[in-house]
C-alpha cells in the first residue's frame, strides 16, 4: 500500500506544446515502485515528449512532476534514473569506442567530476554486461555489433549505475522479432529479479502485454491507464477510440 501513497513517479496535469498546438493535454499518471509500465500510442502521440519531461530534458510548462517524491525541478539524483533513448541505435556507428567503454560511460555521473574509474567501477561494468549477456563482446567496437546487440549494450550502460528507475523509448526498433521476445524477457528479469521500475514506450503492443504490469495509452491525452489485464480486456471499439479510426491494431491477446 505504501507504494500507492509514494509512487516513484507522479505526473499531475501535464500539458506541453512545442509550437502553438498542445502535444500533451492534462496527463496525470502515477507509477508505483516496482511497476513495469508500457506506454503505447500511435506515432506523434507525445510519448517521447512525455519521457523527455520525465527525464528533465524539457522544462515543464504546465503541471507538476514528482520523481522519487521530489519535485523534478529540484531533483538532483539523476544516477537513480537510467535512460535508453529511441535514437540509441541511430548513433554514429563509426564511433571508435569499445563496448566496455560505452558501458563505462554510464558511470560518468556516479564517479563524479575530476575522478577516474576505480577497480570496482570496472567490475560493475562487467556485471552489467553479464546481465545482458554481452560480456564476450566487451572489447569489440560498438559499430561492429548488430542492432539488437547494440541495444543490449545500451541497456547495460544504464544498468551499470544501478538505477532504481529505467526509462526506455522504443528500445526494440531494428531488433528482429525473435530477439524482441528475448529482449522483453530480459527486461522482465530486470524488473522481477533486480526490482527495477521500468517505463517502456513501445509499439509492440501484442508482445509486451503479457510481460508488463501496467499499460498506459497515450494520444495527446491519457486515454487509458490500468494494469495489463484490464488492457487486454479492452474491446476493439475502445482501442480504436484510443488509436484513432481506421488504424488496424495488432493485438495478440489470446
Amino acid at each position: 500500500m505504501d507504494n500507492v501513497v509514494n509512487p516513484i513517479v507522479k505526473l499531475e496535469d501535464i500539458s506541453y506544446k512545442y509550437t502553438k498546438d498542445l502535444v500533451l493535454e492534462h496527463v496525470s499518471l502515477e507509477i508505483p515502485k516496482g511497476a513495469f509500465l508500457a506506454i503505447v500510442g500511435p506515432n506523434g502521440s507525445g510519448k517521447s515528449t512525455l519521457l523527455k519531461l520525465l527525464l528533465g530534458l524539457f522544462k515543464l510548462q504546465k503541471g507538476k512532476i514528482e520523481i522519487f517524491g521530489e519535485d523534478i525541478r529540484r531533483f538532483k539524483d539523476w544516477q537513480k534514473v537510467g535512460f535508453v533513448s529511441q535514437k540509441a541505435n541511430s548513433f554514429n556507428s563509426g564511433f571508435p569506442a569499445t563496448v566496455f567503454e560505452v558501458v563505462q560511460s554510464g558511470l560518468t555521473k556516479k564517479i563524479g567530476l575530476f575522478k577516474f574509474a576505480s577497480k570496482e567501477d570496472k567490475q560493475k561494468v562487467k556485471k552489467a554486461l553479464e546481465s545482458v549477456d554481452m560480456l564476450d563482446y566487451q572489447s569489440r567496437n560498438i559499430g561492429e555489433l548488430s542492432g539488437g546487440q547494440q541495444q543490449r549494450v545500451f541497456i547495460a550502460r544504464s544498468l551499470v549505475s544501478e538505477p532504481e528507475l529505467m526509462i526506455l523509448d522504443e528500445p526494440t526498433v531494428g531488433v528482429d522479432s525473435k530477439n524482441v521476445h528475448q529482449f522483453y524477457e530480459m527486461l522482465e528479469m530486470l524488473n522481477e529479479k533486480l526490482g527495477i521500475t521500468l517505463i517502456l514506450v513501445t509499439h509492440d503492443v501484442g508482445t509486451v502485454t503479457d510481460k508488463v504490469t501496467h499499460v498506459a495509452c497515450l494520444n495527446k491525452k491519457l486515454h487509458f491507464h490500468g494494469d495489463a489485464c484490464e488492457y487486454n480486456d479492452l474491446d476493439e471499439g475502445e482501442l480504436s477510440s484510443i488509436y484513432g479510426h481506421g488504424v488496424q491494431l495488432l493485438n495478440h491477446n489470446h
Binding site: 527525464l55 528533465g56 530534458l57 539523476w78 567503454e101 560518468t108
Partner: peptide, 23 residues
C-alpha cells in the same frame, strides 16, 4: 585528462550526457 569521461560521454551520446545530469 580530468574531463576525459565527461567528454567521452558528450561525444558519444549528447542526449545521454544531458539526461545523466553532468554539467
Amino acid at each position: 585528462t580530468l574531463l576525459y569521461k565527461e567528454l567521452f560521454l558528450l561525444s558519444f551520446d549528447e542526449e545521454h550526457a544531458k539526461a545523466s545530469g553532468i554539467p
